[in-house]
Design a protein around this nucleic acid. Structure first.
Ligand SMILES: [Mn+2]
Ligand SMILES: [Mn+2]
Ligand SMILES: [Mn+2]
Ligand SMILES: [Mn+2]
Lengths: 219, 219
DNA sequence: TCTTTAATTTAAGCAAACTTAAACTATTAG
DNA sequence: CTAATAGTTTAAGTTTGCTTAAATTAAAGA
């Protein structure tokens, strides 16, 4: 097992790489709240350790080894999140920060045991996929932001953006949960907010919030 | 919350202080597997931070503040241990090492939630007391090593030494658990080993093992 | 193409927590 | 009471991961 710092770099790279698998050093610095110079330093070390590909002034990307290490970290993180949510009963806006630390300090045995307790789940409390022991990532039907749903449609929540705790607490408060069904009654053209019905209650949801909720057409 | 290193020092001091509340720098170095020089360094810092009392060449002891911080750490550690044992189902020889890391990275909220799930327990899986939120430590009836039990006596296990995982796995294998009742049938004077009955099975237990099992007379 | 700007790297330095080796104190034995 | 020894501290140096400021490279606009 690598140290916490190394793990944080790998997981930031993994989560923020573009479609081509590349990331700017800039973005890493941003996400970790450190200077660019520190990133350059560390990136050299990670490269020497064979975890990333790096050519100065060009790009940064994960090697095979770095990628599978990062995938294992994401796995740990999401299993912790689901465990805290489902077994311990923490609300979904609190599990991420907790998991951010716990992911670095549980043995594989404990992670696997929790996975078993949770019955080998495919998705975390925010709807993000959990890689299995072999690094396989569950696929999911296409989903799109709630803002793209048509008036009159009934959709079901598949995933929510887990990067803003206030947002999570907010929609949870409105009664929106993973797998909730939402009936789109009206879209206010002025500001893009939506009038929806969910769990028998009708309320308005802002465009900003709706854009962070991902849904599929309800069958 | 202090950093991991500081926490490790405090908890080693707490757990290894003598009756007068003092500890040799020697012992700290030993327990943390680092040099004496490193301990001297750190001990100065902790002293400056008001967590320990320190006079060069004399003694090291916890201040009020250091003591209550250490107590909170022990609380975290033991709640984690019991949680892993009872809720997650890890065997008692595995919970200590896991808790050793987890104790540094769960929020108070999570610890308190686990405590609640466990119904405000008083003792960890090895029979060690769990300080409550206010630092109060549950008292327990007198207990003594199994080696001191008389032939013919029936005793119940109150606590086991949690510092050796092999020992824990061994006695667990023999069927000895916390609160097990043990009937002392015979003591072999040659090597001090004991023939005992526990859960209907009769077997021999070495003096070494028996000396790490603490019991009280069964009522 | 040349110049301006933005992104990135290099240089120099710092703090934390270690190390080994040497110097110092305290304790204990003769 | 002195000398040997055990325990502790100081000195000097290392590694890791960071900082700011200066230099370099790449990209974009005129
Ligand atoms: Mn998360
Ligand atoms: Mn998540
Ligand atoms: Mn323990
Ligand atoms: Mn214990």
């Amino acid at each position: 097992m690598k140290n916490v710092s190394t793990e944080d770099y790998l997981s930031v790279i993994y989560k923020n790489q573009n479609e081509a698998g590349e990331i700017k050093s800039n973005l890493i610095a941003d996400k970790l709240s450190i200077s660019n110079a520190a990133v350059t330093d560390m990136v050299k070390k990670l490269s020497k350790e064979g975890l990333i590909n790096y050519t100065p002034y060009k790009g940064i990307s994960l090697t095979q080894e770095g990628d599978s290490y990062a995938k294992a970290l994401v796995r740990r993180h999401r299993i912790w999140e689901l465990f805290l949510f489902q077994i311990v009963g923490l609300p979904w806006e609190k599990v991420h920060d907790e998991a951010e630390k716990l992911e670095h300090c549980a043995s594989d045995e404990l992670i696997n045991r929790m996975e078993e307790m949770l019955n080998f789940p495919e998705f975390d409390p925010h709807g993000d996929p959990i890689p299995d022991k072999n690094g396989r990532i569950p696929k999911r039907p296409n989903h799109f932001p709630l803002t793209k749903a048509d008036v009159g449609a009934i959709v079901s929540v598949q995933r929510v953006n887990d990067s803003d705790n206030q947002f999570l607490a907010h929609i949870s408060n409105l009664g929106i949960d993973l797998r909730s069904e939402i009936f789109v009654k009206e879209v206010i053209s002025y500001d893009g907010s939506m009038v929806v019905e969910c769990n028998g209650r009708t309320f308005t949801i802002s465009q900003k919030a709706a854009s962070n909720i991902f849904v599929e057409k309800a069958g």
